[in-house]
Design a protein around this nucleic acid. Sequence first.
RNA 1: GUGCUUAUGGUGUAAUGGUUAGCACUACAGCUUGUGGAGCUGUCAGUUCCGGUUCAAAUCCGGAUAGGCACCCCA
Length: 421
Amino acid sequence: MADKRTVVSTEHYKGVRDFYPEDQFIQRYIFEHMERVCESFGYEEYNASILEHAELYRSKTSEEIVNEQTYTFTDRGDREVTLRPEMTPTFARMIAARSRDIPLPARWYTIANVFRYERPQRGRLREHWQLNADMIGVSGVHADAEIIAMAHTIMQSLGATERDFEIRVSDRRILDAMYDSLGIPAASRAETTRLLDRREKMRDFETVLADTLKSSEQATALIDLLDRTTSTSYLEELRVALEHMNITNMVVDTKITRGFDYYTGMVFEVFDTDPSNRRSMFGGGRYDNLLTLFGHEPVPTVGFAMGDVTARDFLESHNLLPSYAPATEVMVAIVEASATSHAMRLAQDLRREDVTVAVNFSGKKVGDQIRQADKMRIPFIIAVGSTERDTGRYTVKNLATGHEITLPAERIADHLFSALG
RNA sequence: GUGCUUAUGGUGUAAUGGUUAGCACUACAGCUUGUGGAGCUGUCAGUUCCGGUUCAAAUCCGGAUAGGCACCCCA
């Protein structure tokens, strides 16, 4: 054994994950469903570097997030660089940079990894992947409905039914109207909104709110207004639009605010209805002013983001995770070293017919090679030795059923595809 | 950043402060020259790290590190 002091740790960095093949399989399963749904709604895929100028996040996000919750460093050319903590500013930047060339409305999506420097806990890591889907250039209830419909369709494509989750919807304009009518100054509105976002988790909510507003009368009046507001005509229009698309698990919940300053209209969050995991999984909303950050005129935009960690937790708790299957369909077992070249040639011929083939060079006994294929859950095995080389006929064994069939090389691929469905 | 809690072979676990730290799985080798999933045998491999208390520490104490949970904050 090597000297302990010189050995490098096999542990991954704090708050990030290794994706072993079984993990990556699930990751890919989730991503493929997201991609398929987005593209079925006419969304185009885009991407960008994880590195951004730090200033991109300074103006629109709070001080604490930039200073304490991002990975920011100075590069060798004295530039402040940040590992993207979210995708929306990058999306807005890309649109603003080419706004003359991009026909609006545009529908874009990406599945990107984002980073935040904080203490990891359940559902919150330092790196996670999230789907971001945004429609830019259209305002109104039908665009809002489409975004919610995509979130809904993704949940269904992953196996969830409407009983498994609910879509809680509100509208930032409800709050704005209340702030106006109560004469709450612009300066304390953002903080008040963030406070409302945490309302359900707080015990002394009313006291803190009165403190923030510096007026217990205003606090009481605001709470009273909120509690009496069950819906708005806009949200009811939205409900109708969703019901036309057979989406019936929307509920109006004026307590949904989504903490961020940039939302300007509809906001929503998707909740798990399982009593043991009754929490917000992901959400989104309308933000019509983000392009002004780049000196651009406002452009109406609505979007949402869905993270892989919460998606995986949801699938796990609802027993919806797929069971692992490798991409490899066939293992070619070499039973005599003299047949190795012949086995590799066979594998190459099968690959040309779109069969995925791994050749086993271990030199172990056939039984052990079969055992390994079975353990790796490879469905078929073909043993190749001098007999096969000389006759040109191969025995294909289905490891799940034990069934064997002997065929000439050119008929193997067809047999496999019909057996695999 | 704060608090609570946990840490034993690769994995999962066991061990009143007192034998050589036990068991299962995995891996590897063999019983077994071309058809497996079983069985048997054997091998590799562990008390996270640093310090303290004690005749004696996996076990008690302090610190570090890492994981989990909650707070803070929420993209």
